[in-house]
Design a protein around this nucleic acid. Structure first.
Lengths: 147, 147
DNA sequence: TTGCATCCGGTACCTAGGTACAGGCTTACC
DNA sequence: GGTAAGCCTGTACCTAGGTACCGGATGCAA
């Protein structure tokens, strides 16, 4: 009985060895078979699974969401209405679009600050000669992920 | 001798009371005067300062950067070449633009996934009939803030 | 002066996604 | 069989930006 050793999987995917175990704890990776001595022996498709996980992360899904999506893919029947990749992708898409819109507002403000030549946050805020309303700017348009 | 009590400042700015002390520890707020019993008495302009801090945060600056910017605004001479608001705003602007570009790639991919009707991450990855290359998608275009 | 709301400092905890370390066992190769 | 590399579990730590809790002190009004 054979399989990939954890360092091989790590090397093949660029994922840290500790992270592999972390994903296992989080339920993203199935528990692999073990050697007689207790060492993990991964099946080949684990490499694919990790690539999928990383791709989904790059699309902005959290690890919890990725776990749900993988789960939903397994037993397709008896799953919640909005658990499918379709619905999640649509929801995620509108989040990403909202984020883009926020960032465009922010970019516009930064450009204005540069163009106006402001060089002191507090002075600009106190005096109305500065065109940038620092005290009230872009409320609710946080750069941070709002999820 | 008077001034605003911490709860008044908190209420006026929507900032948590603990956060006020946190900002003081981080050097974002000057240490205020105290009552005889040791209670903080804030000057009026602290409210403005907090609004500025929150605005700068919304523009995507970290608290460390905000502290630097406030510092730089105080003693304008003898400061580093790139410490000014101008330079920082320019740098931040290009970061924001890069982030927008990344998100646009991600949005495009999500749209493709929705249009193609994929509903199973792993199946889509294994079979080449799916137009979405989950295993190789948008490498380096993480949604996470790359700073 | 009593009573209650507020504030104090210090410390611990939270999210998200990992990463590192310690001490001991296993595997592989010569 | 020896030995070095690799792997095991468990636990602690990291970033960033806060938030919560505790026991005790203070402020203020009646």
């Amino acid at each position: 009985m054979s399989g990939l050793r954890s360092s091989q999987v790590a090397a093949a995917t660029g994922v840290n060895l500790q992270t592999l175990r972390y994903y296992e704890r989080r339920g993203l990776l199935a528990e692999p078979d073990r050697s007689l001595g207790g060492h993990r022996l991964y099946p080949e498709h684990t490499v694919t699974a990790l690539k999928v996980i990383k791709a989904a992360q790059r699309l902005g899904f959290t690890l919890d969401e990725v776990a749900d999506l993988l789960e939903a893919g397994q037993h397709r029947h008896a799953r919640r209405q909005d658990a499918g990749l379709q619905a999640r992708a649509r929801a995620r898409l509108s989040e990403v679009q909202a984020k883009i819109a926020n960032l465009q507002v922010i970019a516009g403000t930064l450009r204005a600050a540069v163009d106006a030549g402001c060089d002191d946050l507090v002075a600009c805020t106190d005096q109305p000669c500065c065109p940038i309303p620092f005290a009230t700017i872009a409320v609710g348009a946080s750069d941070a992920d709002p999820r």
